[in-house]
């Protein structure tokens, strides 16, 4: 981020000393044909039923509204010797497009903020010992993918606090009960007031922008010391702040980081784009779990 800011400043300086013009132009680009891969998004949440979104990759210049959803696949989650075959969502129309999602009756997550095209009634157990295995077979495309994950127990938020400056703005700081003896990975989100916009129509206005959303590696940044995270001076008295700390594994951390890098690289001349690290064998996406602690702070003086 810093490099981007510096670069932008350099560009401004350059522009200050040159006659302005059109510095950006369209260019025709031919992309090579690459085989489409299955994309899996599956988050195992203890106490909630299995849900999975199965799509496929698209060529970059393909119609953006072309349906990415994969129909007719066999999706199996295996755990403790039990194979659970997920059911497919009901489609009201043969075709589906991103600009018309009303042709599908999907599965939802608990707060109905996310939809999935495969689901089950089986409740995901809280098991930190045994692996969860995924197998997906797409007979129409002749493709299959697999993945394995194992849950980690949540890490508690130790405390949250806020402090005001002279301009009556407060920042918030929270601390985790991190185990410095092992390398831990976290995804930390902070929201103001709510996580989703109330009375929203599912899938259209579903999320409220997080104040921040970071994934981090405690060994890299905190070097065995207390893990804490803070905000800017953005809040006023009686504001409500909700922090959520997901205890994630390396696979999910690396996936988040490499997806973020890939997004940031497109448009940053100083970045070296890399490949996305995925735990989906033969495909793309992520098969992981969501174990978390959530805490709320009412900002007070």
């Amino acid at each position: 981020m810093l490099k981007i800011k510096l670069f932008i400043s350099a560009i401004i300086a350059a522009i200050c000393f040159s006659n302005c013009g059109n510095f950006e132009r369209d260019i025709d680009l031919e992309l090579p044909e690459v085989a489409k891969e299955l994309v899996v998004e599956c988050y195992l949440v203890p106490g909630e039923p299995y849900r999975l979104l199965l799509t496929e990759t698209k060529s970059y210049f393909e119609d953006l509204n072309a349906c990415p959803i994969i129909k007719g696949a066999t999706v199996i989650i295996k755990h403790n010797g039990v194979n659970d075959t997920l059911q497919e969502a009901v489609y009201l129309e043969d075709d589906c497009r991103l600009d018309n999602f009303f042709g599908i009756l999907p599965f939802f997550n608990a707060d109905r903020s996310r939809f999935y095209n495969y689901g089950s009634t089986r409740i995901c157990p809280e098991d930190y010992v045994n692996d969860f295995e995924l197998e997906v077979i797409d007979p129409n495309g002749g493709r299959s993918v697999s993945a394995v994950t194992r849950m980690l127990p949540p890490v508690e938020i130790d405390s949250m606090r806020s402090t005001f400056n002279e301009e009556d703005k407060a920042y918030a700081l929270f601390f985790l009960q991190d185990d410095p003896a092992q390398v831990n990975f976290y995804r930390i989100l902070l929201h103001e007031t709510t996580l989703t916009i109330e009375d929203s129509i599912p899938f259209i206005s579903i999320a409220k922008d997080p104040e921040f959303d970071v994934s981090l590696d405690d060994a890299r940044f905190f070097n065995g010391e207390t893990v804490s995270w803070g905000t800017n001076y953005s809040y006023e008295e009686d504001d409500t702040l909700i922090s959520t700390v997901y205890h994630i594994d390396r696979a999910y951390h690396d996936y988040l980081e490499t997806v973020a890098d890939a997004q940031a690289s497109n448009g940053n001349p100083f970045a070296q784009p890399g490949q996305i690290i995925t735990n989906i064998q033969g495909g793309m996406g992520i098969f992981t779990f969501l174990t978390y602690d959530r805490d709320t702070l009412i900002v007070k003086r």
């Binding site: 992309l31 090579p32 690459v34 489409k36 891969e37 994309v39 998004e41 988050y43 979104l53 799509t55 496929e56 990759t57 698209k58 060529s59 970059y60 990415p68 991103l98 997550n109 608990a110 707060d111 903020s113 996310r114 939809f115 999935y116 989100l189 929201h191 996580l195 989703t196 999320a207 409220k208 997080p210 959303d213 959520t244 997901y246 997806v259 890939a262 497109n266 784009p273 793309m284 996406g285 969501l290």
Partner: peptide, 13 residues
């Protein structure tokens, strides 16, 4: 990039 995929991500993102 030659390909793209979309993600739904998790609650709150």
């Amino acid at each position: 990039p030659v390909m793209r995929f979309f993600t739904s991500d998790i609650t709150g993102s």
